[in-house]
Write a protein that binds this DNA or RNA. Structure first.
Length: 220
DNA sequence: ATGACGATTTACT
DNA sequence: GTAAATCGTCATA
């Protein structure tokens, strides 16, 4: 209802603002066979570029890996980490300004059965036991769930048929429904690890980690 | 050429 | 709580 594909203009803002705007919007992945997988974005983190010690683009570092961060806003930056996981970012700001928003968690919306299969690694027992809140509750999990890998690195989210953001124009999640806290997994970022550049939908059970709470012990 | 490490996830003690 | 899995990237030589 009243949903439109996000255009370049939507992404052309500072990463903190985009991180907040993205909460509540829908991430859509269309597979080559036309299958559609989607989820509502419930958790994001902003990476501020040149001055941000936790960003891949700290001090304007530029390499083959993070090249998409220098591309126009609305570009996908997908990278491979820990030898086994992918992370998906939305490039923000302006061209040659390497800032981005990491998408950290989704509430599954379309294609749950295939998402469940993607997350089960061929283990039927595991597929049955996965809770809905385990499907996309982390940056690596949601990439595995929606088949997002380096083949989508650098694509234009405003134009590419395989990956885009569906934006509900008349709705926007109120700040009062969001928790704003420190980013996850950036322990070596010095004082930047204390900056509150992470946002999540406070009431959502699909968030990756909560302050002082082990996600594995969350009730169904 | 080599070694350390990572914007993570999972299983296990 | 701790540790393993697993490999591309980066800094150093």
């Amino acid at each position: 209802m009243n949903a439109e594909r996000a255009t370049r203009r939507f992404f052309a803002t500072d990463p903190g603002s985009l991180a907040k705007k993205l909460i509540g919007q829908t991430l859509v992945r269309v597979l080559d066979d036309g299958t559609r997988l989607a989820g509502i974005i419930v958790e994001t983190e902003a990476y501020l570029g040149q001055r941000d010690k936790a960003a891949h683009s700290y001090k304007l570092h530029r390499s083959a890996r993070n090249e998409p961060m220098y591309a126009p806003p609305g570009t996908a930056y997908v990278y491979f980490t820990y030898g086994m996981h992918h992370c998906f970012n939305v490039v923000a700001g302006a061209i040659d300004e390497p800032v981005a928003v990491l998408i950290r968690a989704l509430e599954p919306q379309e294609g749950e059965s295939l998402i469940r299969l993607n997350r089960s690694r061929g283990d039927e027992r595991r597929r049955e036991n996965l809770r809905i809140s385990d499907l996309c509750s982390g940056p690596g999990k949601l990439c595995q769930a929606l088949h997002i890998d380096r083949s989508l690195n650098g694509v234009d989210l405003a134009m590419d048929p395989r990956l885009f953001i569906l934006r509900t124009k008349t709705r926007r999640v109120a700040d009062t429904k969001l928790t704003n806290t420190v980013r996850v997994g950036i322990d070596s970022a010095g004082d930047w690890k204390n900056r509150r550049l992470r946002w999540y939908l406070t009431a959502s059970p699909h968030v990756s980690v909560r302050k002082g709470q082990n996600p594995r012990r969350q009730p169904v």
